[in-house]
Design a protein around this nucleic acid. Structure first.
Lengths: 169, 169
DNA sequence: GACTTTTAGTTTAGGTATGAATTATATCGC
DNA sequence: GCGATATAATTCATACCTAAACTAAAAGTC
């Protein structure tokens, strides 16, 4: 078995290709998960190599970049879909790096607003440009129509999942 | 802002809905990532609550279930797309739980084959049935045709990404 | 057969992750 | 006002995860 063929074995490659049975949704989830992990791994490793930044930190910067006035920690935690306890430590490191600042809300002293510094914005701008290039390259086999269809179908999937979650609690 | 509306804010909700510009691929990646994380978080938390098992361990068991004769650690690492160093510890814990066994290959003493125990198979069978139910429920808003289209398009996306990665190294 | 190279796994250091318990602050109900 | 409740964030214990350095075993080279 050579390098090339080995690289193609992953979590969902080996599932039997039975046509149209009742496991289709499971297979869809596996495939989605595989693509997501494949791309995330690549982005993570390039962010580390080229910018010495971790994926979670980049993720936080992406959010803050879009909201110049800043976000409170809880909002950040919800948007990134990570636990509040997690945010604390990552924020601390981004502050140590001088990429973000954190200000206690004087009207509600429980809340802490974080926003980018000029340095953070400058650094993020470079990363974002490179990042978009990587993504474009990873997606180069998709036609504009494919991209459009996927956007619509994934939105439908997201909506489906959220509705299902809302029902179950 | 009530609970319901808060729950809908995530990493890609807030991006401007400009029609058809050159950032479509980036938005596609963001949406894919969001759906994947949403579903993974749900699966993870239910596995923990209902079976007291972590997602990574379930992931390993899924692979081993499909290959009764077992896999060597490196194959497992490739299929799951995680680093070899990671596998070591998780395998150790699954062995402590008695769900898998590990045997050194006598023909090549570098290789260690792991496979499920009867206990592991029994436990996994229960988990897998529940897991499939959760996924089905999360996907209930998708028609069979949606599922089919998504399978094809995600395969195309995976192929695109793999080809791009193969070129870049 | 000894020497280099390759391959399989482990170890280590540093950085996420979660859920549960805790602290500090705000708000509600009366 | 004031106790009960709710919310924002932190801390802690535990578990993952990666990259890089390392050990051990096998395979290739001469």
């Amino acid at each position: 078995m050579n390098e090339q063929s080995k690289a193609w074995i992953d979590a969902e490659t080996k599932i039997a290709d039975a046509p149209e049975d009742h496991h289709d949704q499971l297979r869809l989830w596996l495939r989605l998960f595989t693509v997501a992990r494949l791309m995330e791994n690549e982005v993570r490793s390039r962010l580390q190599d080229q910018f010495d930044v971790t994926f979670p930190r980049f993720d936080i910067l992406s959010q803050l970049y879009r909201v110049p006035e800043g976000l409170i920690l809880g909002e950040l935690s919800q948007r990134l879909m990570v636990s509040p306890g997690n945010i604390t430590a990552v924020i601390k490191r981004l502050m140590d790096d001088g990429l973000i600042v954190r200000i206690q809300n004087p009207n509600d002293r429980r809340e802490n607003i974080v926003r980018m510094t000029p340095l953070g914005t400058a650094r993020f701008t470079e990363m974002a440009a490179a990042h978009e290039g990587w993504i474009r390259s990873l997606c180069e086999g998709l036609s504009p129509a494919d991209v459009k269809s996927l956007m619509a179908l994934l939105l439908k999937m997201k909506t489906s999942a959220r509705r299902s979650l809302a029902k179950s609690r």
